[in-house]
């Protein structure tokens, strides 16, 4: 026998999943959302998405190659996802330079400074987004009006998001029922016809992505369901107590990136807990924080902060929440 046999410990059978296949599973799930954002925000969306994705890729390449001195693995798709998600979290009239700064913070600070894929404690795209929100509050909160601003980029006509309208109106003492007439109806919001970040507007497209990822077993249902469920229950309680001061749960779920956050941001592998029980706690925590920020905080929108705060709890959850062991001996007493 000329060739040498290979010897390794068992198993000798290897599954088909690779980092690449999982990441591309997420990318495919992001296609409907991309299409919807291009439909509503047109040129601006295209520029923002391309800038964000390419700058994320370039930063990832440069940092892996020249700072970490490793073989860059651009094609594993994780940098594309980060870039795309960052683009989904900003308005479509954001200047190119700001997007590039956001991508640098997302990839350079939030991901690579911790050692790259798998080691970052916080969701890179959200860190980028929150950095921009704090650094460029004006640019980050001027929302182009959908459809109408399709062929415009920086000069787009801007309006407020439904959540912004609601917050502002409630502060001025207007009742919810009056404010509801100023914002699009639920169906319009569900298909994405409202002001907002690129990716957060179209509930239906995001849910399509969710169905795909569940079918392909890229993610499990625990985080999205627990997060959205918590938001529905909590806002529902407030709405039942005082429908004049608090908007209804459907409004809360459809606006302000709850769906985008629940499906694509909170489920990020690296920054979510390892056990199903932990995922439920994580999702519930995000839902709770989101509601608290929205109803009682200064920001109209709380999903990004809620996810980042819960990201910080993930190591703790991983330590204290253990899966149910097989044949666990339950101690008496």
């Amino acid at each position: 026998m000329s060739k040498l046999l290979t010897v390794s410990p068992s198993p000798h059978n290897y599954g088909k999943d690779t980092i690449k296949s999982l990441m591309y599973g997420v990318l495919i799930a992001l296609i409907p959302t991309t299409v919807v954002s291009l439909y509503f925000f047109g040129l601006g969306a295209l520029i923002v998405i391309l800038t964000s994705v390419f700058s994320a890729l370039i930063f990832e390449y440069l940092i892996t190659k020249y700072i970490l001195k490793k073989e860059p693995s651009l094609l594993d798709g994780s940098a594309i996802i980060t870039g795309l998600l960052l683009a989904f979290n900003v308005p479509s009239n954001l200047p190119i330079i700001i997007i590039i700064i956001g991508a640098l913070v997302a990839i350079g600070v939030a991901k690579m400074s911790f050692g790259g894929l798998g080691n970052n404690p916080f969701n890179p795209a959200l860190v980028g987004r929150v950095f921009l929100l704090i650094s460029f509050p004006v640019q980050m909160t001027s929302w182009p009006v959908p459809v109408q601003s399709r062929m415009q980029y920086l000069d787009a006509v801007t309006g407020a998001t439904p959540l912004g309208l609601m917050k502002e109106g409630l502060r001025n003492g207007e009742p919810v029922s009056d404010l509801m007439t100023q914002i699009p109806n639920n169906m319009q919001m569900f298909i994405g016809n409202m002001g907002g970040s690129l990716g957060e507007v179209a509930g239906i497209a995001i849910l399509l992505g969710l169905v795909w990822m569940l079918y392909k077993k890229v993610i499990t249902w625990h985080i999205p369901v627990s997060m959205i469920g918590t938001i529905i229950i909590l806002t529902g309680i407030f709405w039942l107590i005082n429908p004049d001061k608090y908007a209804d749960p459907v409004f809360h779920v459809l606006t302000g990136g709850v769906l985008l956050g629940a499906v694509f941001m909170a489920t990020d592998y690296v920054t979510s807990p390892m056990t199903t029980k932990g995922m439920l706690i994580f999702g519930t925590g995000i839902g709770l924080l989101t509601v608290v920020i929205r109803l009682f905080g200064a920001y109209p929108e709380g999903v990004s902060f809620a996810i980042l705060i819960m990201n910080a709890f993930v190591p703790l959850i991983n330590i204290y929440v253990k899966p149910k062991r097989f044949g666990e001996v339950i101690k008496n007493g």
Partner: peptide, 25 residues
């Protein structure tokens, strides 16, 4: 089919936790 793939960093996808028949991590 005899060689293992290149070892990469753990991306904490939790798949190993979900497939463990003994409920381990």
């Amino acid at each position: 089919e005899s060689r293992r793939g290149v070892v990469q960093d753990c991306i904490r996808c939790a798949k190993c936790v979900s497939v463990c028949p003994m409920g381990l991590e």
